[in-house]
Simulated scan of single mutants.
Amino acid sequence: MNRKLSIVIPVYNAEPHIKRCMESLLKQTLQDYELIFVNDGSTDNSQSIIESYQKSNSQIILVNQENQGVSVARNVGLALAAGEYVGFVDADDDVEHDMYERLYAAAKLGDCDVVISNYESEQAGHLLLTSYPFSTEVVLTKADIQKQILPFFLKSDQLNTACSKIYRNEIIMEHDIVFPAKVALGEDQIFNLYFFSHAKRAKYIDYTGYHYRETAESATRNVSQKDYFQRAIEVYTSEVPITYLHLIDEASVQQFKAIRLIHCVMAYIHIYLEPSASMPFKAKLEYVRNMILHKDVREALPIYLNEMSIELGKYQKILLYLMDQKSLLGIYLITAYSRFRNRKVWG
Rank of each mutant, 00 (worst) to 15 (best):
Q123V: 11
Y12W: 15
I334E: 06
H246E: 14
M291L: 04
K284P: 02
R20D: 10
P280Y: 02
V89P: 00
Y119I: 11
I60F: 06
I331R: 01
R3M: 14
L305N: 06
A277T: 01
K295I: 13
N306H: 09
Y332G: 01
E286V: 00
A14L: 07
A277Q: 01
I50M: 12
R341C: 13
N342P: 02
K155W: 02
N39E: 14
Q59D: 09
L5F: 14
I259E: 11
Y104D: 08
Y33L: 11
A82W: 02
A81N: 10
K55E: 15
L285I: 00
M279T: 01
L245P: 03
L193P: 11
L128T: 15
S135D: 14
Y132N: 05
N13L: 08
G347Q: 12
K314G: 08
D296K: 02
V240P: 08
S238I: 11
V95L: 13
S309A: 09
K108P: 09
E34D: 11
V240S: 03
T136F: 11
A107C: 05
N57L: 05
I292C: 07
V235G: 00
K155S: 14
E239P: 02
A79L: 09
D227F: 07
L333E: 13
D113P: 03
T243E: 13
T237K: 06
K165E: 15
H97N: 10
M173Y: 08
M279V: 02
Y132Q: 05
L322W: 01
T243M: 03
L293Y: 12
W346Y: 14
S131D: 15
E23M: 00
N306M: 05
I177Y: 08
F281C: 00
Q65W: 01
Q28T: 08
V70D: 09
S24G: 12
D176V: 08
F179W: 13
L320H: 03
D44K: 03
M291S: 03
V235E: 08
E84V: 06
Q146G: 05
K4D: 12
A73S: 14
K317T: 13
K295D: 15
D32K: 00
L261H: 04
S238A: 14
Q28W: 07
N306C: 06
A184S: 11
Q254P: 00
R289F: 04
P241L: 00
V63G: 07
S121Q: 12
G186A: 10
L312A: 05
F153W: 09
A73G: 13
A258G: 04
L322E: 09
V297G: 01
D94Q: 13
I177Q: 09
G186M: 09
S58D: 10
T237H: 02
L140W: 06
F229R: 02
H17M: 13
D111L: 00
V183A: 13
R298G: 00
I116A: 02
T43Q: 15
S56I: 06
Q123K: 03
I177A: 11
Y204I: 06
Y272R: 03
L35S: 01
Y132P: 12
I248D: 15
V223D: 02
Q148F: 05
F37L: 12
A232T: 09
D296Y: 03
L247Y: 05
L159N: 04
N169Q: 15
L193Y: 14
L193N: 12
M1Y: 10
T208R: 04
S135Y: 07
M173C: 10
A143N: 12
D296I: 01
A277I: 01
F229Q: 04
C264G: 04
D92K: 05
V178C: 06
L285R: 01
K19G: 09
